[in-house]
Computed example of a mutant assay.
Amino acid sequence: MGEANLRVALVGAGIGGLGAALVLRRAGLQVEVYEQAAELSEVGAGIHLAPNGSRVLHRLGLEPRLREVAAQPQALQVRLWDRGVTVARQPMGAAWAAEFGAPHYTLHRADLHRILAEQVPAESVHLNHRCTGFAEDEQGVRIDFADGSSAHADVLVGADGVHSVIRQALAGSEQPQFAGTAALRGVVPAELVPELAVEDMYVWTGPSARLLVCPVQGGRGLAFVAVVPDSGDLRDSWSRQGDPAALAAAFADWEPTVRTLLGAATEAGHWSLYDREPLARWSTGRSTLLGDAAHPMLPHYGQGASQALEDAVALAACLGERTAGPAGIAAALRRYQELRLEHTTRVRGEALTGGSQRLGGRKEGEMSAMVEDIAWVQRYDVEQALAPAAAR
């Protein structure tokens, strides 16, 4: 094992960055986080924390905090878009926790972000630090910021999202492929939609759009994601604001409960969906990527947060078992990439056509096909996957 005082610089203080900071600190590494925003906050709406992700946070002792703010849906209902009839109901809750070894949570992105931020000392998170580039050599890596300052570390981890500066430096220019759709997301108070039980998740699939609804904020809110046709004229920013009135108008001929839900929305984020081909490599001698910076994927599998948390566990294990010196760091980052690249490439591929996209709502067997489709990734245990690699 290498020296314990390895200095790791993380660029990006989103869910992936803070999750990595937590796991790396627990592994005994020195971690500093650099974030371009002026305050530590998170935008967005609902988020899924699948069993493969929740088991990571449970092992870190965060189960009590998760249960305070998250919901654990008891079932997934598929309803007809025009008549509101429930055509399928898949038990979740305790059944899924037993089947996959951990719960499936739904929660507000900001709540998960806050839970992770609580675990990282404030003095280790440096705000107003927008990374503009980096340079590495045998002695370490220098990270440069827009204000002219710089920082030095032994390892650089880019957790700065789909438009990562670190990714661009490692992978060069890319041409994202527009998916033809956008995800419009928001949260409404559950009390405004009494027709929907806050214990369940819901999916409606129409001729050209799809609506997913899940409980958040301990059941006090209902988060929605409407997947609709989109022009793709604007950049694939997931923080751009949409027009709630236009959203409601797009679903004006859907069943009454849908109209009530979307009519109650006072804001909606507009995320034009783009896909990116997997990278052939994402690590160098002292630098690597994590989460969306390494493997951005469409949201239809609900795996973004869980994959970032798995990355963090794998990276911490590899760095913790490294041999001393620059060669040991480089070998650890290669091993991390090898452990995660094949798996995340498969998840990204399945997200193109799988998950809730399999639910048309009018054919028998669709629900069982969807559950079978996601079971392999829900059951995945990153620590078990690390064990065979450590034995080699």
Score class of each variant (00 low, 15 high):
residue 34 Y to T: 15
residue 36 Q to K: 13
residue 37 A to G: 14
residue 38 A to F: 09
residue 38 A to D: 10
residue 39 E to Q: 13
residue 40 L to F: 02
residue 41 S to G: 01
residue 42 E to H: 10
residue 42 E to A: 10
residue 42 E to D: 12
residue 43 V to K: 12
residue 43 V to Q: 14
residue 43 V to S: 14
residue 45 A to P: 09
residue 45 A to K: 06
residue 45 A to R: 04
residue 45 A to E: 05
residue 47 I to W: 13
residue 48 H to K: 03
residue 48 H to P: 05
residue 49 L to R: 05
residue 49 L to V: 07
residue 50 A to Q: 09
residue 51 P to I: 11
residue 52 N to D: 08
residue 52 N to V: 08
residue 52 N to A: 03
residue 52 N to I: 08
residue 52 N to H: 11
residue 53 G to D: 02
residue 53 G to T: 04
residue 53 G to Y: 01
residue 56 V to E: 01
residue 56 V to A: 00
residue 58 H to K: 10
residue 59 R to G: 12
residue 60 L to E: 09
residue 62 L to A: 03
residue 64 P to K: 05
residue 64 P to C: 00
residue 66 L to R: 07
residue 66 L to G: 02
residue 67 R to N: 11
residue 67 R to A: 06
residue 69 V to Y: 07
residue 70 A to D: 00
residue 70 A to V: 03
residue 72 Q to A: 12
residue 72 Q to W: 05
residue 73 P to C: 05
residue 75 A to S: 06
residue 76 L to Q: 04
residue 78 V to A: 11
residue 80 L to F: 07
residue 80 L to P: 03
residue 81 W to E: 11
residue 81 W to N: 14
residue 82 D to K: 11
residue 83 R to D: 15
residue 85 V to C: 12
residue 86 T to G: 03
residue 86 T to P: 02
residue 88 A to P: 06
residue 88 A to R: 04
residue 89 R to L: 08
residue 90 Q to D: 07
residue 93 G to H: 01
residue 94 A to I: 00
residue 95 A to K: 03
residue 96 W to S: 14
residue 96 W to L: 15
residue 98 A to R: 14
residue 98 A to D: 13
residue 99 E to G: 07
residue 99 E to S: 06
residue 101 G to Q: 07
residue 101 G to T: 06
residue 102 A to W: 09
residue 105 Y to F: 02
residue 106 T to F: 09
residue 106 T to W: 06
